[in-house]
Simulated scan of single mutants.
Amino acid sequence: MRIVVQEAPFDFGAEAAGFAAGRQDMGAIVTFTGVVRDVDGGLSAMEIEHYPGMTEKALEKIATEASERWSLGDVLVIHRFGRMERGEQIMMVATAARHRKDAFEAAEYLMDYLKSRAPFWKKEHVGQDAGWVAARDEDEDALTRW
């Protein structure tokens, strides 16, 4: 298991290739990356804040829970903080399991958790204005299936 919280951009291709390298015991590897998307043509940037130490512990806890629940062989979570422009990668999740169902479900579980419960705070910059992003009901509702 590898949990990374960093300010610098990451190379998705290199991370995915490194995660998959040499895996002969796993039949499925699932990857996902989230990017900063535009909001009605006006988003210029997003800022993400977190509490160092607390954030990593929270991510490790949920990754361990996913590993146990879905019998994963490995988990990778990379999440950035700081200022990011439209189109930049925010986060990456990768799961490895003997069977695809476990890998897909665990990846979805991790993504739902990261979106709604991980201790990150997001601020969107639209034109000259900036505002904190409020929790969305649909993100919270996604957790009910787990």
Score class of each variant (00 low, 15 high):
residue 2 R to L: 08
residue 3 I to R: 13
residue 3 I to V: 13
residue 6 Q to G: 06
residue 12 F to T: 04
residue 13 G to M: 06
residue 16 A to S: 09
residue 16 A to H: 14
residue 17 A to R: 15
residue 18 G to L: 12
residue 19 F to P: 03
residue 21 A to G: 14
residue 24 Q to S: 13
residue 26 M to E: 12
residue 30 V to G: 00
residue 30 V to A: 00
residue 31 T to K: 07
residue 34 G to D: 00
residue 37 R to V: 01
residue 38 D to E: 11
residue 41 G to F: 15
residue 42 G to R: 14
residue 44 S to A: 14
residue 48 I to Q: 03
residue 49 E to G: 06
residue 55 T to W: 15
residue 56 E to H: 12
residue 61 K to Y: 12
residue 61 K to R: 14
residue 65 E to S: 13
residue 70 W to A: 01
residue 70 W to M: 01
residue 77 V to G: 01
residue 79 H to M: 02
residue 81 F to M: 04
residue 81 F to Q: 04
residue 87 G to N: 12
residue 88 E to S: 10
residue 91 M to I: 02
residue 91 M to N: 10
residue 91 M to F: 08
residue 92 M to N: 01
residue 92 M to H: 02
residue 93 V to I: 05
residue 93 V to Q: 00
residue 95 T to S: 01
residue 97 A to I: 04
residue 98 R to H: 13
residue 102 D to S: 05
residue 104 F to Q: 00
residue 106 A to W: 15
residue 106 A to L: 10
residue 107 A to V: 00
residue 110 L to G: 02
residue 111 M to P: 02
residue 111 M to A: 02
residue 112 D to K: 07
residue 114 L to E: 01
residue 115 K to T: 00
residue 116 S to R: 10
residue 124 E to G: 04
residue 129 D to E: 12
residue 130 A to G: 12
residue 131 G to M: 12
residue 132 W to I: 05
residue 134 A to G: 11
residue 135 A to T: 12
residue 135 A to R: 14
residue 137 D to E: 15
residue 139 D to R: 04
residue 140 E to Y: 14
residue 146 W to E: 05
